[in-house]
Design a protein around this nucleic acid. Structure first.
Lengths: 228, 228
DNA sequence: TTATGTTTTTAGCCTTATCTAAATTTACAA
DNA sequence: TTGTAAATTTAGATAAGGCTAAAAACATAA
């Protein structure tokens, strides 16, 4: 747990930047570029420079001018705490409040910044301590541990392979709804019948024998793991 | 529904001020004094003057220098919308997340400002459309209607009267817990055995025949309605 | 009606987070 | 290795919301 005794809990802006850095570079050790963070948060690059400086003063990132920022241990812990909250809240909204994929992300984005640790703990209990959210992303533990993710985009699967849908990216809510409407959600298995190099269209067959063909953007949003 | 199209949804500060004004003057038509609002929100009187000016520009209060502020229709609607959210959220936290009285208020205070109307609607459904929160305060309807409250503080009851606990003020959480621990919550009936003018101590007997004596501050926190 | 105390407002300043425009650094290709 | 394009930082503004200190208005008691 981070001690923000001096400053109180970090503002929701600070949290947004930390999450953005995490979501861009993950555990790779690389630093997040100003521009990438600016795009992800829809703010100007100048604002990101400014915030990187402040985050460094707070000890949440290591920042070198013109080189981008890397999360410190404290920064990463804080990011994962927000991601945990976000995914638990999404789970609640979907499973108990009847939200659709489209609706869920925006609401969770706002709630994650105001909810207390007590709320998070009690909600996790209420939900039965899930370790994935409904689109398959792992939920960090209260201690900030995150299950490593060895799934790959459907576009990189091979013809003939039997794969299990692991997660559907929540980047674009309309994509989530598209797959949701067709019953293609984490846990379902598919057989890859063709991966066409020419146009990167992937054709799969689902458990009910239905055949689907997906183009580039879609095959980058569905992550799968090969089944034995 | 208020159209904040120009400004987006009002900031949480704006909402806090509107709620404070409502909680101070209610439907009385009187105007809320700068000092009273400042105390309720723990801000300086100067900040209140400043905000009253801004609220007036937004059309949420009518404000006359040195005379305090009165909510406009729009201001009242917005205040009641927040109060509805607050009470629904409290209900959820108490009934489903195992919060205590002590814990619940603070969390609801933060959540009420970020939650969407969709969330409020779905939560109301989830909770079965309650019309009171767990300590007896009426929950405004989605249309902003609030059941009038004809209860009176226990201190004003008369000896020999049979009364039903209507609500316990949530002003002071330790008071809530005190009564909660003794099973004295909205809905229970009491028989008033003595109202002593000398020290304003009220003695009551509960349904199980237990006798309780309460001094001034407590008798001002419990609101009752005479039973036929 | 005047003196005194309380309330309220004004004036000026601070912080956070954002922006645009201009200056600077980096990277890469010829 | 040098020139240009892209990325980044700096400089200067703005807006919300808060503060303190000083000035102004109000209220009341003598």
């Amino acid at each position: 747990m981070i001690d923000f005794a001096a400053t109180g809990s970090p503002s929701s802006s600070v949290g947004d930047y930390l999450k953005a850095v995490w979501e861009i570079v993950g555990n790779s050790g690389e630093s997040a570029a100003t521009k990438a963070v600016a795009e992800r948060l829809s703010v100007s690059p100048a604002s990101v420079s400014n915030m990187f400086g402040r985050l460094q003063e707070m000890g949440l990132v290591e920042y070198e001018r013109y080189r981008g920022a890397v999360l410190t241990d404290r920064g990463r812990a804080e990011a994962l705490r927000l991601i945990r909250r976000h995914r638990l809240i999404e789970t609640f909204l979907l499973e108990h409040l009847g939200y659709s994929w489209q609706e869920v992300h925006e609401e969770a984005e706002k709630l994650e910044h105001v909810v207390s640790d007590r709320f998070t703990t009690r909600l996790a209990e209420f939900l039965g301590h899930p370790d994935q959210d409904p689109h398959g992303d792992p939920i960090p533990t209260a201690e900030g541990e995150l299950e490593p993710d060895d799934s790959l985009p459907l576009g990189q699967a091979e013809a003939g392979q039997r794969v299990r849908i692991f997660k559907v990216s929540d980047e674009d809510a309309s994509v989530l709804d598209y797959f949701g409407d067709r019953g293609l959600m984490p846990g379902r298995t598919l057989i890859v019948s063709e991966v066409r190099a020419l146009d990167n269209v992937v054709t799969v067959e689902d458990e009910e024998g239905r055949v689907h063909s997906f183009g580039e953007p879609l095959t980058r949003s569905v992550f799968v793991r090969p089944e034995p």
